[in-house]
Design a protein around this nucleic acid. Sequence first.
RNA 1: CCGGGUGUAGCGCAGUUUGGUAGCGCGUCUGCUUUGGGAGCAGAAUGUCGCAGGUUCAAAUCCUGCCACCCGGACCA
Length: 600
Amino acid sequence: MRLSQMLLVTLREDSAEAVIPSHKLLLRAGYIRRIGSGVYAYLPLMWRVLQKVSQIVREEMNATGAQECLLPQLQPSELWQESGRWDTYTKAEGIMFAFADRQGRNVAMGPTHEEVITAIARDMVRSYRQLPLHLYQIQNKFRDEIRPRFGLLRGREFIMKDGYSFHTDPESLKETYQDMDKAYRRMLERSGAEYRAVEADSGAIGGSGSQEFMVLAEAGEDEVLYTEDGQYAANVEKAISLPPDAETSPFSQYEKRETPNTPTIASLAKFLKCPPTAIVKNVLYEAVYDNNKAVLVIVSIRGDQDVNEVKLQNEMAKLAPSFEAKGLLELTVPDAEAQKKWAAKPLPLGYMGPDLSDDFISGKEIHPQFVRMVDETAVDLENFVTGANETDYHVVGANWDKDFKKPGIVVDVRTAMVGDRAVHDNSQTLQTARGIEVGHIFQLGTKYSEAMGATYTNENGEEVPLVMGCYGVGVSRLAQAVVEQSHDKDGIIWPVAIAPYHVIIVVPNVSDDKAMNAAQSLYDELNALGIETLLDDRDERAGVKFKDADLLGIPYRIVTGRSLKQGKVEVVQRATKEAQDIALDEVITTLKQWVDEAIG
RNA sequence: CCGGGUGUAGCGCAGUUUGGUAGCGCGUCUGCUUUGGGAGCAGAAUGUCGCAGGUUCAAAUCCUGCCACCCGGACCA
């Protein structure tokens, strides 16, 4: 491609809409343009990058035996009603663009395709002889993110590879899951990303084991906890660790004390001169189930620890059947407004005990008793301090089953923290990093196949539900994540494998016929060899061209300039800025070799 | 959804307090000069001032309503 003919508009200044480097650079270098909030046009250079990433993904998927297909983006509500996700996706999470067509039918723009694929499997898979089966697609997904941000990193329309596998049993699923783990690692390595695979929460999508692939970058929206020995890495939402040991409580007598102005753990510990680990704090949450029933839960946890809301959400979801519900819609800390709806009398906020009376609850919309849970960190505490259910009063020297009934539900809902000891080896401590989630693999099990009646006939002639897995890669997100990792003050530094072009030939002076001719023949020869080459034949000053070449991030730059007199051209590597003069008749083979080595 | 902010030329912004013919830089176009790191000189074009009402002789500026976008939070397979 000749730059004189290409739609290339670079900006000298950063666009006001971007805050992180990768977003700024993609806009400045003319790769993308914003069309609406979270909606972007992929301009010609970006589209080439996206096609390269897609192709890497495609090759690695095909190598595992997965088959590519293309599923509809427009999906009827019936399928989502069947899986039970219509309400959670249109109301609770509200992440699905849904609307009624002119006949009044409800339809949605696909945020994901479990329902569609399960319907297909239900129709087409009859026998164990057809299994295992793995279908995938690469296409646009739609999610009504409340707050899109960071360009392609959190858009409302984005490109994703999603694959779904079907199995006779969990063992077969595990095999494919392992294959995907390997395939994903290869994809990310080939794309030139520095990444980490971490244990993840499987969230609303359901299922058992799941793993996320994080591209490490400061701008990442997720926190990753890991150990130096490489044995453990998890998203903070999922991470477990050993909490610090509790210090012995200075109290031995159970008594109520006046503790004015101590609504926080820090203020209370200071006032009582006791360690935070001797305090049991009680946190109130309000859960709303998909039958619109609201339930209040009191979580008792050691004072120095924080509740991990993702873990708590999972615990509350498990309780759904006891409230005649299928799933959890939302979990919030009830603010003053929310409390008004059900509080019979003002709550002793900051001074609640594990035994806060159910009398505080009134109203029809709400379950009349508190659900009471205790985190593992608070189970074994002795002589602890906790709220006295009266503002400005606490009790000290308390013990479970003597002074307080121990809650029946013992759970792990604490947030693991950097510096905690690791579970697998307590000499290892957790380190922290930020990551951009570019891939997520799940073992779904039979959640969707059961809900939607997708069954097959096994060797014994029995009809049983398909065992499923699903696997996603954010293609557009990955492309930008790589830029987030790989840039310098002058612009993007593309890894060769996903660069829009491998080489850019810069002609500093287009009115110099010799320079133009040399450039032209190099351009022809390189392209003929499959080395994707740009020719900057614009009538611009050399400085402008160099600046643009750096900004665009093309891995190799050839300059047909002053060294031409010696029969040489200058070749510059974008990543290192290393420059060398190479004889005209050697340039082609040298570059061919470099590109081949880089792509592997 | 809560809170904060911004909407003026393709991009970045000033002008709004105190109403009076809409500006600057970059970019774009023309000409001459220049030609290896975002050139110089001369000239030119480019605007429903987010939208709709209102006040006023007169509104980018004041008032009311709405919309869009950005930031923090909440949220986020």
